[in-house]
Write a protein that binds this DNA or RNA. Structure first.
Ligand SMILES: [Mn+2]
Ligand SMILES: [Mn+2]
Ligand SMILES: [Zn+2]
Ligand SMILES: [Zn+2]
Lengths: 143, 143
DNA sequence: ACTCTCTTGCAAATGATTTCCATTATCATT
DNA sequence: AATGATAATGGAAATCATTTGCAAGAGAGT
């Protein structure tokens, strides 16, 4: 089996670091791998715990520092959903918004082309250009 | 001129406290008056400073406590825009979302019936019922 | 291997908000 | 108006998430 670099894989995160002239350390590699598998939206502590299993020397500070640097490089996204601490996810291009299940805490992703368009329109009418936006729905399963 | 109770005035906030069996203290009255004039979205410190001009005995703790209690009663809304501390505004029924001017920090209110509808649809399709949501646009003036 | 400098872990610092607690004030009742 | 039960207050200390200072350690180009 060939060594393939899947999109959204860990190697593109490493590439971002490399291109920014940043060093690829053991702890960064571990953190990047966790982010790369994706799927969920872990907070710093969850990331720290998972990373610790791979490399017991990792510190929470390093997790925070790495998140900051990756965010600045645009490699990850930071979300601060209501209530809790910041949560992170690999930014692999395709933008989406979130629906948070108030009972389970689950985060469901969605994307509405129409809403995206309408946002642009609204901003334009108000004389603005959108730099970023945040749309979060908080709800419960319908019985 | 008759003593009129305008909608969104200070007296309805007082009424909410009264109906909840809460006491109307000098400091709460001052804070409520500031919220009632509305217009902007002050954070706790701004609220504290403005209130202090009216009543020098007010403490920041009281501002926070009052915001918490009013939020629980649904009398005000708490917003945590990116970056800064929580900001508050009188919840006078009419829901709206916000556009934040990244340069000036100004907060512009807007409301899109279409977006509100689309959100409901999305949630329904995902099997959810929306309890609350948050839509924030961050942008700059178009030149 | 050498060296320059970026990173790290740990502890201490921060900033926002909450909580503790002794004192004060509200307000229903007398 | 005085009383009393108890909610609210100010100030300090505690909490929580996150950042920062610093000395020691580790990338990576040579
Ligand atoms: Mn996501
Ligand atoms: Mn508003
Ligand atoms: Zn979106
Ligand atoms: Zn809305």
């Amino acid at each position: 089996m060939a060594e393939t670099t899947e999109p959204g894989g860990t190697s593109d995160l490493e590439a971002i670091l490399r291109e920014a002239g940043l060093r690829i350390t053991r702890q960064r590699r571990v953190i990047l791998a966790i982010l790369a598998e994706g799927g969920d939206h872990p907070d710093a502590l969850a990331l720290f715990r998972r990373a610790s299993r791979q490399d017991a020397t990792i510190s929470l500070s390093t997790v925070y520092r790495t998140m900051k640097v990756l965010e600045e490089k645009g490699a990850i996204q930071r979300h601060t959903f209501e209530g809790g601490p910041a949560r992170f996810e690999h930014a692999d291009g395709r933008h989406h918004d979130h629906l948070i299940d108030l009972d389970s805490g689950a985060v469901i992703e969605f994307r509405s082309e129409k809403i995206e368009k309408l946002q642009e329109e609204i901003a334009r009418e108000l004389g603005y250009e959108i730099v970023s936006h945040r749309l979060e729905l908080y709800g419960r399963r319908r019985k």
